[in-house]
Computed example of a mutant assay.
Amino acid sequence: MENTVINDLKKRRSIYALGKNVTQTPAEISTTIKETIRQSPTAFNSQTVRAAILFGENSDKVWDIVAETLKEVVPAENFAATKEKIDSFKAGFGTILYFTDTATVKQLENDFPLYAENFGFWAEQALGGAQQAVWTALAAENVGASLQHYNPLIDEKIKEAFNIPDNWLLRAQMPFGSIEAPAGQKEFIPDSDRFLIFE
């Protein structure tokens, strides 16, 4: 099947060997990320996805916060492996912090009470769609990335370090950079376990 979307999705892999050898400028990468999130769908066009795009020392600061936080909770004998993993994210060109705007979610819950219990779920769906879209857009430009989840452990320190609004709830971190080593082989469960087709 020749489909550019599917071909780009195949390029979107979890890249853990990241570097700083990208050809794009921070401004060009920021434009790609912003436009991709802008074009990603949200329920009721609620636009609940927020992002902080960090480069250089600001990106490094995210992973320093992760390391400092985990050092307090990971057993000392296991911390070296944890630190090595964190350093692999820090080695990248930048980091995207993904948030949900909880104020918008609460407003929708108030405005549409019949659907109130769903807006939190729909915000998560919107976030997942935006993350995959950004990840794929970066992969299409030969920029590797992975998706990490150190929240809620780092939430307060991140808010303080970057003056994040209180209504932005941290949901994920995406380190990105040059692809210094390819991803491993991807395995798939059988189609019969995943799909139902009715013709």
Rank of each mutant, 00 (worst) to 15 (best):
L9M: 13
L9A: 03
L9R: 05
K10Q: 15
K10S: 12
R12T: 08
R13I: 10
R13T: 09
Y16A: 12
L18A: 01
G19P: 06
G19I: 06
G19V: 09
K20T: 14
K20W: 14
V22C: 06
T23V: 09
Q24N: 13
Q24W: 11
T25R: 01
T25C: 03
P26L: 00
E28C: 08
E28R: 07
I29Y: 03
I29R: 03
I29H: 01
S30K: 13
S30Q: 13
S30M: 03
T31D: 13
T32K: 05
I33H: 00
I33Q: 01
K34S: 15
K34G: 04
K34A: 15
K34T: 14
K34W: 15
T36P: 03
I37F: 04
R38L: 03
R38W: 10
Q39K: 10
Q39V: 13
Q39F: 15
S40W: 00
P41Q: 04
T42K: 08
T42Q: 07
A43H: 12
A43L: 10
F44G: 14
F44P: 08
S46Q: 11
Q47I: 06
Q47S: 10
Q47D: 15
T48R: 03
T48F: 04
V49T: 11
R50D: 04
A51M: 03
A51N: 09
A51I: 08
A52N: 03
I53Q: 01
L54W: 11
L54E: 07
E57R: 05
E57M: 06
E57Q: 14
N58P: 05
N58I: 02
N58H: 14
S59I: 05
S59P: 05
S59T: 12
S59R: 00
D60F: 06
D60E: 15
K61Q: 12
K61C: 01
K61E: 13
K61A: 11
V62Y: 00
V62S: 08
W63C: 01
D64G: 09
D64M: 05
D64L: 04
A67F: 08
A67G: 04
E68F: 15
K71V: 09
K71N: 08
E72R: 14
V73F: 10
V74K: 07
P75F: 04
P75Q: 03
A76Q: 07
A76F: 02
A76D: 12
A76S: 09
E77W: 08
E77Q: 13
E77P: 07
F79S: 00
A81Y: 02
K83H: 15
K83Y: 15
K85Q: 09
K85R: 15
I86E: 00
I86M: 09
I86Q: 01
D87F: 03
S88M: 11
F89M: 05
F89Q: 07
K90N: 08
A91Y: 01
A91S: 10
A91P: 04
G92V: 07
G92I: 08
G92A: 02
F93K: 02
F93V: 09
F93A: 12
T95G: 09
T95Q: 04
I96E: 03
I96M: 04
L97A: 11
L97V: 03
Y98S: 04
F99L: 06
F99S: 06
T100C: 10
T100P: 00
T100L: 11
D101S: 09
T104P: 02
T104L: 15
V105C: 01
V105L: 02
V105H: 00
Q107W: 12
Q107C: 10
L108E: 00
L108H: 07
L108C: 03
